[in-house]
Amino acid sequence: MILFPAIDLKDGKCVRLEQGNFNKLEVYNESPVDVAIEFERSGSKVIHIVDLDGARTGERKNASIVQEIIENTNLDVHLGGGIRTFESISFWLELGIKRVILGTIAIENIKLVESAVSRYGDRIIVGVDAKNSLVAINGWEQSTNQNSYEFCKLLEQIGVKTIVYTDISKDGMLSGPNFEAYKRLCNETSLNIIASGGVSSIKDLLSLKLLNLYGAISGKALYEKRFSLEEANQCLQDESYLA
């Protein structure tokens, strides 16, 4: 299982939200580029970036910072937040993003997602953000009536290979992931599942690995030094930790 350290961008800074609430925002570092470089030094080969400004407005106001991260590291960058047009998908991929994560647009225009998958294949990931098993959109600020599990099955049908599934109630709370949700997704789909929200310990990561998930995202736990990237990667690579 791959561990994706996370950077959430807001007004050019590295921040974390609590349960997706923009009023509960904490700035962890003024320089997201420095954070990315440190993640790479600690052994990461990938990084998960969310453009929170983009998620709310659809604008690319943090594009220059993302570009700096690409130019100053060798990390494979996964980026989500405000990517809602085919032009925007192409812009980010041509900039050097390894894989883009589509969120709101997947609910609003599933045909666009299907076209993007047809053209870009597994470089397209869909982020499914769930609150009480219903999909939320527009930076988690608006709920829909779409059941999150049924939506994941639909995504698989149109050719999506990988999803980031976030339980919003767990995000930023350091209370542990929604393991039951990931068990259900594993049982009901063949998707590559990246778990997001609530990872607070090495034990959480190992429990997710036992579910045979593709990956897990961690942000707040890393920033608050609940565990280190070096320690986490070592545990995930060493099968003896699962004994």
Results as ranks from 00 to 15, higher is better:
10 K>S: 11
5 P>R: 01
35 V>N: 13
116 A>Y: 01
31 S>Q: 14
133 S>D: 15
187 N>F: 09
38 E>T: 02
144 T>F: 02
52 L>H: 01
132 N>I: 11
51 D>Y: 00
190 S>Y: 15
179 F>S: 14
53 D>A: 02
176 G>E: 06
236 L>G: 02
93 L>D: 13
184 R>F: 11
20 G>T: 05
55 A>I: 02
10 K>W: 10
187 N>Q: 14
136 A>P: 04
73 T>E: 14
199 V>I: 04
53 D>N: 04
130 A>I: 06
168 I>F: 05
20 G>R: 01
145 N>M: 14
32 P>L: 06
236 L>Q: 01
71 E>M: 15
105 I>Q: 09
93 L>Q: 13
50 V>D: 03
31 S>H: 13
72 N>F: 14
219 G>Y: 02
192 N>K: 10
132 N>M: 14
93 L>W: 11
70 I>A: 08
181 A>H: 09
162 T>A: 12
224 E>F: 05
210 L>T: 08
185 L>H: 11
150 E>Q: 07
165 Y>W: 06
99 R>D: 11
175 S>L: 08
106 A>R: 06
237 Q>T: 04
230 E>T: 05
13 K>V: 05
109 N>Q: 09
38 E>K: 07
88 S>W: 06
150 E>P: 04
119 R>N: 13
75 L>A: 10
93 L>I: 14
10 K>V: 10
7 I>V: 10
239 E>A: 10
79 L>M: 07
4 F>G: 03
205 L>P: 00
116 A>M: 04
144 T>L: 04
